[in-house]
Amino acid sequence: MADLEDSIASIKASQSHSTPVQIMLDMILATSHDQRAAQVERAVDWVSQEFVKTSHIRQTMGEDLLTIEIITSMKAMGFDAAHDTQYGGHCDIVVEARDDFLWIAEAKIHKGYDWLLAGFEQLDRRYSTGLAGQDTGEMIIYCFVERADLVLSEYQSRLTGSREDVKFDQDITQGLFRRSVHTHVNTGRDFRVRHSIVPLYFSPVR
């Protein structure tokens, strides 16, 4: 066992913090639902960064194609990830793991704020279970317009206005994500959502 642990530590030390290999190893070694959720988020962040680097070839891609690319990348990292799973409806992204872990994401292209708010309602009221180990999820926003940061801020403002029960972490004011918590209507447990935006605006001057 010590040799195995030393080998794993050596592999992890050889990788930078956010490589797919590092994420995969940390997911395998995760011993709690919070640790598993953190690795899922790292995987989403890694894929999102790759999307931004290649945004010029993604300008005509639709929601399903973008989302399937995220899932394909997550599968390559070893995640049990799927698209269109029937949990209360057609879920965009489902990740499952041992001990009944379940993480669900709704992914929307920003076509208007009502469209995004409807996506949140689907995630919250239709797809999520709210059970232990199944009480985290994500809203992923694909943004093809300028200033993704301002779009995210306006989305947060509008969601707060339409759902007074959803409380955002007021300490998170920078970056391209926000975190919220509210009481899940099905279980009465806290349901935690990360709201992330993928900036895909591309309009070169030359």
Rank of each mutant, 00 (worst) to 15 (best):
F144T: 00
I23F: 03
I8Q: 09
D92E: 08
D100C: 11
R98E: 12
D45I: 02
I70N: 03
L25E: 02
G137N: 05
K111Y: 13
Q15A: 13
F144S: 00
T187K: 04
Y201G: 00
P20V: 09
R194T: 10
R179Q: 10
E63M: 11
N186D: 12
F79D: 02
R36L: 15
D84E: 15
L152Y: 04
E96K: 15
T85R: 07
I197Y: 04
H83N: 11
A105C: 12
F120A: 00
F79W: 05
Y201Q: 01
I109G: 00
T183K: 13
F177T: 04
I172P: 02
Y201S: 01
R189G: 06
G89V: 09
F191R: 04
L4N: 07
I70E: 03
Q22E: 10
G89F: 12
R194A: 07
S162Y: 15
V185L: 09
R192P: 07
I70D: 03
T136K: 05
A2S: 14
H195R: 04
T19R: 04
M1D: 10
D3C: 06
D80A: 12
F177E: 08
H83P: 04
G88C: 10
N186G: 13
S162G: 07
M77A: 04
T19H: 06
W46I: 03
D99S: 12
F144G: 00
T173H: 05
L152D: 01
A43K: 00
E5M: 13
Q156L: 08
V198K: 01
D64V: 12
T54P: 04
S32H: 07
T72E: 13
E154N: 08
G133W: 02
V181C: 11
R189M: 13
L123I: 11
D149E: 14
L66E: 03
E106T: 06
T67S: 09
V205G: 03
M61E: 13
V44R: 01
G119W: 05
I140K: 00
F101I: 09
I104P: 01
F202R: 05
F202G: 00
A82F: 12
T85P: 10
H17N: 06
A37L: 06
F144Q: 02
I71E: 06
D34I: 12
S157T: 15
I8Y: 11
M24L: 07
T60F: 09
E41S: 09
V193G: 00
A97N: 10
F79N: 02
T60C: 08
H33G: 06
Q59W: 08
H33T: 09
R98K: 13
A43Q: 00
V95R: 01
M74I: 10
S14H: 11
D100N: 15
P204L: 08
S10W: 15
S153C: 07
D34L: 13
V166L: 14
L176S: 01
R163C: 08
R126F: 09
E5L: 14
V185G: 04
A2C: 10
T136I: 08
L117W: 11
S162D: 13
